[in-house]
Design a binder for these strands. Sequence first.
DNA 1: CCTACCGATCGGTAGG
DNA 2: CCTACCGATCGGTAGG
Lengths: 205, 205
Amino acid sequence: MSPRSSLADAARTRAAILAHGTAVASVEGLAGLTIGRLAADLGMSKSGLLGPFGNKETLQLQVVEAAADVFWREIWEPVADRPAGLPRLAAVCGSWVRHLARPVFPGGCFFIAAASEFDDRPGPVRDLVLGYADRWHRELRGQALRAVADGDLPAGTDPEQLIFELTGLVLALHQALRLRQDAGAVPRACQGMARLLGVPVRPTA
Amino acid sequence: MSPRSSLADAARTRAAILAHGTAVASVEGLAGLTIGRLAADLGMSKSGLLGPFGNKETLQLQVVEAAADVFWREIWEPVADRPAGLPRLAAVCGSWVRHLARPVFPGGCFFIAAASEFDDRPGPVRDLVLGYADRWHRELRGQALRAVADGDLPAGTDPEQLIFELTGLVLALHQALRLRQDAGAVPRACQGMARLLGVPVRPTA
DNA sequence: CCTACCGATCGGTAGG
DNA sequence: CCTACCGATCGGTAGG
């Protein structure tokens, strides 16, 4: 009941809003996130929910940031201790597949959905999603370049082509799992990745 | 001004609504299609627009069907005269790439967007989108099976794996073009397809 | 964080 | 095909 406690309460409230917001947005879309629905789900008033954010766009931006934190923690951090280059690239492919196969958000991969939803809608939300996509792309490219330099991928391998094809396998896996509910797509994605990398890929946490 | 003319007028009105509806939905999403916005764009009243359809869901379903007609005409029909098997499969990959690179709808590929938007929303719209996806999948598989039977793809080639990877390249191309606005993705998609098929793939109309 | 309220827009209907 | 209208919900604000 001290000032410190009410700051902590406010932080908890904000965290609860963002956690539920990422879950709802993964299913309904970021644009389909409504203040009234979120407030009702959390037993709050609309104005109370909007308070920490000011307006809907700021809420959307912070939902994207919260989802990015989860994505990074789920996929990249578990493999950060693998040797740079091919071992880490193969490991991140495995944890990426795992993230899609055992979805953290009820609507599957938040970023695949957000990228598709906002690819044609200019504005701060699109810019932020694109910024995270670029960051992800650069991380993958760094590992691919290192793998080529180490001789773990054939000389002359084009890192951009490799990352393009790996991304394609992830997107095909997402569509197969979400739209077609075809769990057989998990080994197909791993097989395609393994062929591109020359080493086994398995869904790992 | 005869009855025949007013039937023709009604058909033209319906066609205009569906043509504009597919365009708007490709950008705003099928759920973001609103009756008021569509009516304002076309200079009609909301009730006049809703008349031919009865309710929004029926409008959505008929927009999906109209988009499917365009998709089929744009991608499959131009290559229907190619020999069945590998030649037709390579040709359809080329016209598929072309469809994405020179988008017919302002929001890019209607079906990639609709599949992502409705993969988590049960109901008639999802069922219809899934039905078209299945139909597309079966067409591709038929050509792949024929290519294997003809000896134009290595014996032991798994048609499902092949189609999964081809679809991944299409999805990666869509994301690169729409989100990242990276036109360099067109040759990357073609290169990946050519490696999978063993023959050149070029974007063709 | 709340209640109470704002104008705008939603999908849809009545009646012509 | 239209006007006129319905209740519900949208994002957001005033005031506490």
